[in-house]
Every structure is written in C-alpha cells, then in structure tokens.
Design a protein around this nucleic acid. Structure first.
Lengths: 210, 210
DNA sequence: AAGGCTATGTAACTAATGTTACTGTGATCA
DNA sequence: TGATCACAGTAACATTAGTTACATAGCCTT
C-alpha cells in the first residue's frame, strides 16, 4: 500500500505521515455501482481516493436524487470529514462511479494528525474548499442554467471522470442524476444528436464534440 | 472588545485564545446594505460575527444573483476561511443584512492558531461543516422545491434572521435573492395574502402565519 | 424464431415559470 | 397640489419542463 500512497499522495504529505497512514489505514477496492455511504448512516473512516471515481448524491425525503459532484484521485470526501469530526450523520449518498481503489483512514487519527502535521491540515482545508466550491458550482448550474445546458455540462463531466468519450448510461439514469424525467432527457439528447454533437446508441452515448 | 468576545465566543474558545484574539483583532461595525466582500477580491481578514446578520450571495457572469445563506451571531464565513488559507479569490458576495458588529482577525494568525488551539480547529471545522450543509440546503431548495415553497422558506429565514415578523423588502429585492422576476414574486405573494398567511404593504410584508 | 424485457422515440397535453406591457396607487417634493 | 417616481397588481402570452400514453427497436432467453 505504501507505494500506492507515495504515488498518489507523496507530493502532499511528508514521509512520517505517509508511514503513519500506512500503519493504520486499510486498503479497499470497490466495484462500479457499489454504495459506499448511505444517507443517515454514521461514518467511522475516511477515504483517500487512489484511483477511480466516486459519485456524490443528495437525496430528499421522497427519495428524489441529485448529483452533487464526483470525487477523483487525490480527493477525499469533505462530508465524511465533517461527519467524522462533528459526529454528525451523513447527509449524502456515495456510489462508486467506476471501479475504484481507496485507502480508509480511521476517524480517531484525523484529529491527532490535524494537530501534528501541517500538510494534513492543509489537505483537509483544501478538501473543504474544493467541496464547497463544487457545491456552489452545482448551485450555479441548477440556478442559472437551463436543462439543456446542464445536460451538456453533465456529459462533459462524465467524459472527464471516466476518461473516455462514451457515456455508458441509460436516459433514465441521467434523468435521476439531474433530477428530471426520462422523457425530458431523451428529448434533449435527440436534439444534441440532430445538432451532430453526440451519437445515440442503446445504453450508451458517444460524444462527438461538446 | 474582550467583553463582547467573551459574551459571544467564551463558550467556544479558551481564555488564552480569547486574549490573543483581543490583541490582534479589530472591531468593525457595518450598516445595513454595506458590501463586505466583492466577488473576485482577495481577502485579508476573517470576520467573527458578534451581532446582526450577513447575507451571502452567489453572482454569475451576467450579474445574476442568488442568495446562498445568512451568517449570524457566532458564525464565521467559511468562504473567507478557505480563501485566506488557500489564497484563492472570493467567489461570493457578502452584504450586511442588518446593522452588524464584527471582529476581524488577520489571516496570518489563523494558521498559527489552527496548530496551537484545539478549540480553534474545532471552530473552523464546525464552520466548514455548517456552510457546506447550508450550501446543500440551498441546493435542496432550488432542486426539489417549487418557487412558492422557496418563497415561503425565504420569508421564514428572513423573519428568523431579522428577529421580527415583518420583512422590509420590495418584491424586486426578493426576486433578486431568489433569482426570478418581480412579477413572479408579486403573483406568489398575492396568493399567500389571499390564503391569509401574510399581509402585503408597500415596502414590507407582515407575516401572519407560515 | 418467438416471446419478453428494457430502452428509446415521440406526440399531446399540463403545469410552472418567465416576459411584456400596461394600470393603479401611495409617497415625496418642488 | 399636482407632477413625479418607485412599487405593486394583473392580464396575456411565450417558453421550459414535467406527465401520460403509446409505438418501436434492440437484445436476451429459450
């Protein structure tokens, strides 16, 4: 594990901290579609993402969903951070977007490291900053954009996160992420196809130019 | 200033830290409507709110606005925190909602205190958590609620923040905060009046029951 | 190859929100 | 006191998004 750690977090953390992480953390692999965090659950360890991508969703009381953002290599989950520290329940849902490798750090160590390592503090603060900014970008996109623009942005994010120019999702799945209906998504995707920006297939969307 | 500090933050910080704050911080009073933070500006000090309320807005490139949340007594601005620490530009706009009293802490001290005082670390983390949750509540309300429900929630927030059951705003001002048009707000407010929940007057709205 | 299942396409309609344009009304001030 | 101005009321219409309903197409299983 230490090698994975050094490759992905070596530029952030000093050796001493890397060693400590190596001692107490556990390695975890998850497959696409696995639910990592349920809303309302308590969280006992914090993930550092080594590879893959994690989708973070908000769910309302009716079970309606909305995609908040993706976590990628080098990221951690700010919600988990604050849940751990403040002993709050999780307010979000996390699902593996692709097969992913994670390093899980037990809650107890975090407080200790925050006092001890400047690099850890910076990492934690930077993570919070990034998540807050992502949340605000999500707000921007819901508040200021129309559904067709949101869909475009969604497709762009997907290709970036999955690192390929094909989005392997059904229209229904996209509709859940954007909190709208399947018919609306089909309609808008068809429009994008007519404009020559994408090519529609069953269960997948090929991105031509966005 | 030390007395104000003790009254409002005494339960959070140990005496030594309160003394330090007292030494380096400056006291600031702002009047309703004052702009505290412009989007795109750099920030050199962090506010602790003693009294009053600060309105935090997001602005898009066209100058369209959206209310994110209010800061009140005991709060600090998480955006400012992360701007200070990460030396990012401000991504938000802050306006005094009411006449307010603030204690301004120079950026330099924050990093130092984070290493030195557990209570300060907890305060900073808790602030981040609260802001992230507020951002997510804003997302909930834009994504899952219709305009009439958002308006109701807005009126409730206003009465809470201003601590009175009259909202002293024009329909246009409310429309800006919710990022919609004046006509839409007038329409919905009229509906609420017909339902007996509010009483409309020029420049003010009396809340009867929400 | 037939049947069944899931995904997609599309029309027709409803609902919500946004826009334009005009009217009325209360406050202020020369 | 009457001219002006900002605010609010409202009708009529446009646009966007959500809903219902049904047709068709691709894929898998037997």
């Amino acid at each position: 594990m230490i090698q994975e750690l050094k490759n992905n977090y070596g530029h952030l953390f000093e050796n001493e901290l890397l060693e400590e992480i190596n001692t107490v953390a556990t390695f975890k692999e998850v497959s696409e579609g696995n639910e990592l965090i349920k809303p309302g659950s308590y969280i006992k360890s914090m993930p550092l993402i080594i590879s893959g991508a994690i989708k973070i969703l908000r769910e309302d009381q009716d079970g309606d969903e909305l995609l908040l953002y993706f976590l990628e290599r080098g990221d951690t989950c700010a919600m988990t951070l604050s849940c751990c520290i403040g002993h709050h329940k999780s307010e979000i849902k996390a699902i593996a977007e692709t097969d992913s490798k994670l390093i899980m750090i037990p809650v107890g160590k975090m407080e200790e490291w925050t006092a001890k390592y400047k690099s850890w503090r910076n990492f934690v603060f930077e993570s919070y900053h990034k998540r807050l900014m992502e949340a605000i970008e999500t707000i921007d996109s819901i508040a200021f954009l129309k559904m067709d623009e949101r869909l475009l942005r969604y497709l762009k994010d997907k290709t970036k996160v999955n690192n390929e120019n094909v989005v392997n999702n059904t229209h229904q799945e996209i509709a859940y992420d954007l909190h709208t209906s399947r018919v609306v998504i089909s309609r808008l995707l068809k429009k994008l196809e007519v404009e020559g920006k994408i090519k529609l297939n069953r269960n997948s969307i090929k991105i031509l130019s966005l």
